[in-house]
Amino acid sequence: MHAWGLLGTGAYTPPHIAANPEIAAALRIDPQRILDSTGIRERRRAAPAQAASDLAAEAARAALAQAACDPADLGLLIVGTSTPDEPAPSTACRVQALIGARRAVAFDIGAACSGYLFGLKIARDWLAADPTHGRALVIGAEVYSRFLDPADRATALLFGDGAGASVLGRVPAGTGIAGVHLGSDGTQADTVLIPAGGSRRPATPDTVREGAHRIRMDAPALRKAIPETFDRALAATLTAHRLTIDDIDLLVPHQPNPRTLRLYADRAGIPHAKLAVIGEHLGNIGAASIPTALTAAEADGRLKPGDRVLLAAVGAGLTWGSALITWNPPGKERT
């Protein structure tokens, strides 16, 4: 018998670093204030010629290399992103062409920071329904810097650019993805959004002057929603598997910011040693946060065979999700 799990992970962050002094200068505040309020020291910025698909393709190549997987063997390619190359076609189709995954069915998921988990659920179920699909690639990629107002204190200091990817395939029974639980609440859709550029408010000279193509965020509403929704997301998976947080070896959340994560962990009774935090040097990279944090945790030796790993995300929409993985070391597909 087999299960479905991660055969390889990979991440890519652009080389340009935007440290707090650079961000603080545009906001006219002390750089120390950014560190104190968020725990972020720096974030990455894509080069002018780089789009979300370029970052996604780099992360995909790293994950494919670790999995010893040829792109031609992929049956499915999913990209979770809030910052696509263009409204159409899908960024996944751009990535498909870049990496040569000519056989893969490719499409995007618009679930914001939860996009990787939505993709994980679809990919696992797709493969389980028909193993002849081979392997799947799930990517989270964001180029938030193109959608930021550098003078907006609610967003400019938080968001970075990056991509993370995972190759899914067969793993031994008793390991792999044990379950994924998802949720949405569209009544909170205005909490974080890009107001213009879609069919409701197409691009016009007025929307451009207004800056309506940039991220808008209701920070007070999010401060309330994030811990409540993290509670809901974690409870869904822990309850389904009759576990408590004490049974979890590593919690890998999406990365709103390090300070928020550590405050949440303290409130929820989660030891910091069980928490994967990468935001100090990357900021919030949205759908890329979880696969990038997984890649870092695996590279740092924080994951051992058989570890129970809990993934969790809260994103615009409002969306949320959690997943339980029994860790199987990435590498060549197990048979």
Rank of each mutant, 00 (worst) to 15 (best):
68 A>H: 10
51 A>D: 02
94 R>W: 01
116 Y>L: 08
68 A>V: 08
89 P>F: 12
69 C>E: 04
76 L>M: 11
105 V>D: 09
85 D>P: 01
58 E>I: 03
72 A>D: 08
77 L>S: 05
96 Q>L: 06
111 A>W: 02
93 C>R: 09
87 P>L: 11
109 I>E: 09
112 A>Y: 08
70 D>R: 00
82 S>M: 11
114 S>I: 06
67 A>E: 05
98 L>M: 07
54 D>K: 07
108 D>A: 13
89 P>Y: 14
80 G>C: 11
111 A>Q: 02
117 L>N: 06
78 I>P: 06
87 P>H: 12
107 F>K: 01
114 S>Q: 05
64 L>W: 04
95 V>A: 04
57 A>P: 03
74 L>Q: 09
90 S>E: 02
87 P>K: 13
94 R>P: 00
96 Q>S: 03
84 P>F: 00
83 T>P: 02
69 C>A: 09
57 A>K: 07
103 R>Y: 10
48 P>F: 15
109 I>R: 12
98 L>D: 03
74 L>V: 04
72 A>H: 11
71 P>F: 10
65 A>H: 12
86 E>L: 13
107 F>W: 02
90 S>I: 01
98 L>W: 09
102 R>G: 01
106 A>D: 11
78 I>L: 14
83 T>L: 08
76 L>W: 08
77 L>H: 04
107 F>M: 06
53 S>T: 02
59 A>N: 14
69 C>V: 07
75 G>R: 11
99 I>D: 01
118 F>Y: 15
96 Q>W: 11
53 S>E: 02
55 L>K: 03
74 L>Y: 08
108 D>P: 10
95 V>R: 03
86 E>T: 12
104 A>T: 06
51 A>G: 04
118 F>W: 07
79 V>T: 08
110 G>L: 08
101 A>P: 00
117 L>E: 06
50 Q>R: 15
83 T>V: 00
105 V>W: 10
61 R>K: 13
118 F>H: 11
102 R>I: 00
87 P>Q: 15
77 L>I: 00
63 A>S: 14
116 Y>V: 02
104 A>M: 14
61 R>D: 00
92 A>I: 13
77 L>N: 06
48 P>E: 15
81 T>M: 07
112 A>F: 09
107 F>D: 00
65 A>E: 06
51 A>P: 00
113 C>V: 04
92 A>T: 05
74 L>F: 05
101 A>Y: 01
102 R>Y: 05
56 A>H: 07
60 A>P: 01
48 P>I: 12
91 T>P: 04
118 F>R: 03
94 R>K: 14
48 P>W: 15
65 A>M: 14
103 R>V: 03
60 A>C: 07
49 A>M: 10
76 L>N: 09
68 A>L: 15
100 G>T: 01
102 R>K: 15
81 T>A: 13
109 I>Q: 13
116 Y>Q: 02
67 A>K: 09
105 V>L: 12
81 T>E: 07
79 V>I: 07
69 C>N: 07
88 A>T: 01
75 G>T: 02
